[in-house]
Computed example of a mutant assay.
Amino acid sequence: MRPLKLDEDIRPLSEFRAEIASFVKQVNDTKRPLVLTQHGRGAVVVVDIAEYSAMRDRLETIDDIAASRAQLAAGEGVSHDEAKARVLGRLA
């Protein structure tokens, strides 16, 4: 995801409501998120669907890594040799 351009990518919700199509096009074209404010505070972020999907994939990978580390710390892991033997055993 590309970084925000503060002068272009932060808009009030009222402006977004009035020009939804142009803002959706901006997000799709630039691949940058659009921050919408309400009463002067950040309210929501509009993100391109492909960028959102990529973020979800990265978060799932990070969650998997964290779970793996926790399992290893709890002694639930197996050695490389054992894992290799299990895989080769299933393939045979």
Rank of each mutant, 00 (worst) to 15 (best):
S68Y: 04
G75K: 00
L59A: 02
D63K: 11
I65M: 14
I65Y: 12
A70K: 10
L72E: 06
I62W: 14
M55A: 15
A83L: 09
L59S: 11
A83H: 11
R86E: 15
Q71M: 09
R69E: 14
R56A: 02
R86G: 01
D64G: 02
A85D: 10
S68H: 06
G77H: 04
A73C: 05
D81Y: 04
I62V: 10
A85V: 06
V87F: 13
R69Q: 13
V87N: 03
E60D: 15
R58I: 02
R56C: 14
A67N: 03
G75M: 01
K84A: 01
Q71V: 03
V87R: 11
E76V: 08
I65A: 04
R86M: 07
L72T: 06
I65T: 13
E76S: 04
A54W: 00
V78Y: 04
E60Y: 09
S79K: 00
K84C: 04
A83G: 13
A54H: 02
D57G: 04
G77S: 02
A67F: 06
S68F: 08
H80W: 14
R69T: 11
R58Q: 02
G75T: 09
G75V: 00
I62Y: 11
L59Q: 11
E82M: 08
D57E: 15
R86Q: 11
Q71C: 10
E82L: 05
V87D: 14
A70T: 10
D81M: 01
E60I: 11
L72D: 13
R69L: 15
I65K: 01
D64C: 05
E60T: 05
A83I: 00
R69M: 03
I65Q: 08
G77I: 02
Q71A: 06
D63M: 00
T61Q: 12
A83W: 07
R69H: 03
G75S: 00
G77P: 00
D57K: 09
A83Q: 12
Q71G: 01
M55Y: 03
G75C: 00
A70R: 03
Q71Y: 12
E76D: 12
L59D: 11
R58L: 12
R69K: 14
V87Q: 14
L72Q: 12
A85C: 04
L72N: 06
I62C: 02
L59F: 09
I65E: 13
S79G: 07
A70C: 05
S68W: 15
M55N: 04
R86L: 09
V87Y: 14
V87A: 03
R69V: 12
M55L: 07
A85M: 10
A66Q: 14
V78N: 00
A74E: 10
A74R: 07
E76T: 01
S79D: 06
D57L: 07
D63Q: 06
L72C: 08
E82W: 00
S68L: 15
D64V: 04
M55Q: 12
V78I: 12
D63S: 10
R56P: 02
R86C: 03
L59G: 03
A73W: 03
G77K: 08
